[in-house]
Nucleic acid binder design. Structure first.
Lengths: 157, 157
DNA sequence: TAATATAGTTAGTTTGCCCTAACTTTGCAA
DNA sequence: TTGCAAAGTTAGGGCAAACTAACTATATTA
């Protein structure tokens, strides 16, 4: 039996993949130091992760060389990044939480969503932003609803 | 300085707490064997988790005795269970994914949501189920939207 | 009540992921 | 072109959470 290189990724490896993805968009190549910085880990941790991702066929990795994504890696990273974006949009634009909170939660929750839910959530966000009522979209309506909830809780504030 | 017993729980410990919560509702007391069964881990793993939860003041634990939640534990478990329920409802009733998928995703995603997002998501679910349009609620409308998306993808099926 | 099955614990191992400290490689500047 | 700083790696350790195997306590029932 051949070595399986397509097992499910851990949350941690998904995070590395996503970081590499963003870096390669900006600067073509991902350097250990930049990955470490963007994730808040040490360079030593990055080396370990790169080895793991390389074994799974997701990155082109040579010690002391530049790191790039393989085609398979690009696809996997794209899926993760898309989940992240959808969630951040849902939390931020629709629920109305502040940007930092939305980002943090999206980063943690993205690992829990499979393709089924991802697809539907994406469609749902789109659906809501298209739907208008009284000239207001659903996000605005919910915002108003949320305000009234809080007013009834803190009537004077 | 006193020992801190209110540090943030790991995803794993939150899961144990939630399992204990559900068991004590059903049968007043949580037995290691039942916790192990409901979580798909061995009894030995449960012992370790109970010790950890006990150290944090979340469960009443005595070796070979029955386990119950402390008041603090009940509150923490309730928060987790509520997040779980809200997510499952959102994934299932609104997005329209099947029950098993909704459950699995809720169980994984619940650990990523803080109080801010939890509160707003709960309100959002409520808001949508209250809002009616054309005599149809938003879930139904989205369902129709989703169908048309899939039809345009697979026109003959 | 003594034998045995079931539940629970302990000890020791594994895996994943992070760290620090020390080492190697690379690239740039004098 | 040598020589140093920055980047990268290796070695070794810690912690959390799971496992197996072996042991202890409790409960059942003959």
């Amino acid at each position: 039996m051949a070595i399986r290189t397509d097992e499910k990724l851990s949350a941690s490896l998904e995070d590395y993949l996503e970081a590499i993805y963003h870096l390669t968009v900006r600067q073509d190549v991902a350097r250990s130091k930049d990955i470490a910085n963007s994730m808040g880990v040490t360079r030593a941790s990055v080396t370990g992760a790169l080895r793991a991702l390389s074994e799974k066929g997701l990155v082109h990795y040579k010690p002391y060389g530049y790191t790039t994504l393989t085609e398979k890696g690009r696809q996997a990273a794209g899926r993760v990044a898309r989940r992240h974006e959808i969630l951040a949009q849902f939390f931020g634009a629709l629920l109305g939480v502040d940007a930092a909170t939305a980002e943090t939660a999206a980063c943690k929750a993205e690992h829990a969503l499979g393709p089924e839910i991802t697809a539907r959530l994406m469609a749902f966000v789109e659906f809501l932003s298209q739907t208008q009522d009284d000239g207001k979209d659903v996000a605005q309506q919910f915002q108003a609803y949320w305000e009234t909830l809080n007013e009834s809780k803190y009537p004077s504030g």
